[in-house]
Simulated assay, not measured.
Amino acid sequence: MITFIPLTGFLGAGKTTTMTTTALALQEQGHRVAVITNDQGVELVDTKLVRSKLDSVAEVTGGCFCCRFEDLVEAIVGLVGSDNVDIVIAEAVGSCTDLQATVVRPLRQYYGDHMVVAPLTTVVDPLRHLAFERAAQRGEPESDLSYLFRQQLSEADVIAVNKLDTIPAERAETLLTDLRAQYPKATVVGCSATTRQGIDSLLDAWRAPAGNEAVDLDVDYDRYAAAEAQLAWMNQELDLVAANGEFDATAWARAVLDHLSTWAAEHDAVVGHAKLTVETKDGDFTKLSVTRAGEQPTPDREAGGTTDVARAVVNARVACEPEALDRAVSEAVTAADQCAQVVSSATAPVSFKPSYPRPVHRLAPAGA
């Protein structure tokens, strides 16, 4: 019998870091753990980072788990069969919701003889949550993105407030208290996947009964689709060659994301996330990310030294039109090329907006 642990949460919440950190913690306890990444597009920055830390990794691309249910099952079966794992952790696309009805219940109903599905966990960025809360306190109408964010919280069995190391302790305690009052059926855990603070409490929550299993979430799929359609999605590959000797891959990546972050702030464009990897010819790589407009890039990994050639992958999810994101990324790359003395060549821009969510299954709670 294997255990399947589903993660959801808005873009930039730190799901991948949470997944990786908890997988390593479970391995330390003697488990054999695999993970699955998920995205609307292909060429995922996060998958490369996860594979640098874990042996058993799969990905489901081209849509969320709810719309790619058979692909999810195939990935689980493949990992169990090839790597003999006993735990699979999977993170859904950051713009996805209604997972209790479209993923958790179908897995329990159709595969419950072979699989224990752990409580559904929503990973939360505290600063993102506070931003949505401030908008509500100002009396602003609830945006479609805020609606999507609230639905992710409403269906959670476990709410994992991540990145607690980024806010003051008093503020963190107030936030946890407020979430426990707002979502009394959920287990609310504070943690930092980066520092491992609270990770043991999160693992304990996964072993407890699911609190929201019987809740039938009322999802307005038109609003859900509208929220996803506010975001332009880009996955782009680039080949990089030094214009003069060698270049610093981390400096180039930082310049790209600095420029893109500044552009988003100037255009009041919400950044779901912008992530970038640069892999050198010897297999070393840099990974940086931005989760809010105007912020400085955060390094997850930095390549050592310089290189003469490299390959980059950009994943950007920004609330704007696809054509605007194409231009913004192209301008950011041009600026970074000039700064780092690089000649880059890229695949054609492929920004798009997700299609209307059409889950394979949508099951009501037992007895409903």
Rank of each mutant, 00 (worst) to 15 (best):
M1H: 11
F149R: 03
M19A: 06
A169S: 08
C96M: 03
T347A: 15
E213Y: 00
D200N: 12
F65T: 02
S261T: 14
E170F: 12
V219G: 08
G294E: 10
G62K: 10
T22A: 10
S143M: 08
P354I: 08
E321Q: 15
E213C: 01
V256E: 14
V88H: 00
T18E: 02
A13P: 03
G305E: 06
V290A: 06
V329P: 07
T20V: 07
A205D: 03
T61F: 00
F65L: 04
Q341K: 14
D337N: 14
S261K: 15
R292N: 13
P365E: 04
A101Q: 07
S82A: 14
P126M: 05
A253Y: 09
R171H: 10
N315C: 04
K287L: 03
T187R: 08
D220Q: 07
V88W: 01
S95V: 01
R128L: 08
V104Q: 01
A243R: 15
Q197E: 14
Q152M: 12
K185N: 15
L257R: 09
A332R: 13
V77F: 11
A101H: 03
G41D: 09
Q151W: 12
A131H: 09
D71G: 11
E295H: 11
S344Y: 07
A346K: 06
D216Y: 02
E70Y: 00
V88R: 00
W252F: 12
T37W: 08
A243C: 15
D165M: 08
A58C: 13
G211S: 02
D83K: 15
R150C: 14
A348V: 15
A208F: 00
T8E: 08
A181C: 07
T97L: 03
A368E: 13
T18P: 05
A366H: 10
E246I: 11
A193F: 03
Y111M: 15
Q100P: 01
M234R: 14
S345F: 07
C320Q: 11
E213R: 03
L203F: 02
A131Q: 14
A34S: 13
D98F: 00
A156D: 00
I167A: 09
H273Q: 09
N244Y: 05
Q182C: 08
A23Q: 06
S146D: 10
H361P: 01
D258A: 03
S201W: 03
G14D: 11
A328V: 10
A346E: 06
Q341P: 04
V50D: 08
V343I: 12
G78N: 04
W263A: 11
T334D: 08
A264P: 09
D248C: 11
A160L: 04
T187Y: 00
I5E: 04
L363I: 02
G294I: 07
V333T: 14
G94F: 01
L153I: 09
R68E: 10
N162M: 09
S52K: 12
G211Y: 01
S344Q: 05
V35T: 13
L153P: 04
R68Y: 05
M115P: 00
Q29H: 11
